[in-house]
């Protein structure tokens, strides 16, 4: 019997930490489609994702979590549509030290929300750098007070896990699987 697959998207501007996050959550080697950066991106990193990153977490013989990282550049946005088919949720990452990254987050977030309506959460990276925007400032720029925005350092496995677990918490809430009973 084929395993049931739950698919999660990890999106965001270039250099936000998407590939790192996928590596932390996968128990197999991550498949990447990195190519040498040729344009402005080359100022940020030597190589960048042009099609996707793909990692898998094997839960059991009958269940797998598939993590798909999207390319950060708009010119590869055709892959955003391809990868979003059948996804259960969306994690957006943004580099809080880059004004360009924060501006691009708005475009990417709106793109996915209009096309997919997926439950979504935003992780704000590089909080350890002086002058970085805070999650509150990023949320204000995003102008979506209903969207959870939280600090995240994808280099730390625990942070990556908290972000993914927060997304599943949102999904479960949407499915009303969690009990909303009161204590007293």
């Amino acid at each position: 019997m084929a395993a049931e697959i739950v698919k999660i998207l990890i999106a965001g501007p270039v250099n936000a930490g998407k590939s790192t996050l996928i590596r932390h959550l996968s128990d197999t080697e991550v498949v990447s489609t990195d190519k040498a950066a040729l344009d402005d991106v080359s100022r940020l990193k030597a190589q960048t994702t042009v099609a996707m990153d793909h990692g898998i977490l094997h839960v059991a013989d009958d269940l797998e979590l598939h993590l798909y990282g999207t390319p950060g550049q708009r010119r590869f946005s055709f892959m955003w549509d391809v990868l979003s088919v059948g996804a259960a949720g969306l994690i957006c990452l943004v580099d809080a030290t880059s004004e360009e990254s924060i501006a691009e987050l708005g475009y990417i977030y709106d793109y996915f929300r209009k096309k997919t309506k997926l439950p979504a959460i935003v992780g704000v990276t590089r909080q350890d750098v002086a002058g970085a925007a805070t999650p509150a400032e990023v949320a204000e720029r995003l102008n979506r007070p209903d969207v959870p925005v939280m600090a995240c350092d994808p280099r730390r496995k625990e942070d990556s896990k908290v972000l993914a677990l927060s997304l599943f918490e949102l999904i479960l809430k949407g499915q009303e699987e969690l009990e909303e009973s009161d204590f007293f």
């Binding site: 049931e4 839960v59 269940l63 979590l65 993914a164 677990l165 999904i171 499915q175 699987e177």
Partner: peptide, 10 residues
């Protein structure tokens, strides 16, 4: 639930 199992795995 599927998502409960996924959360435990993570």
């Amino acid at each position: 639930s599927i998502f409960g199992r996924l959360m435990n795995a993570i």
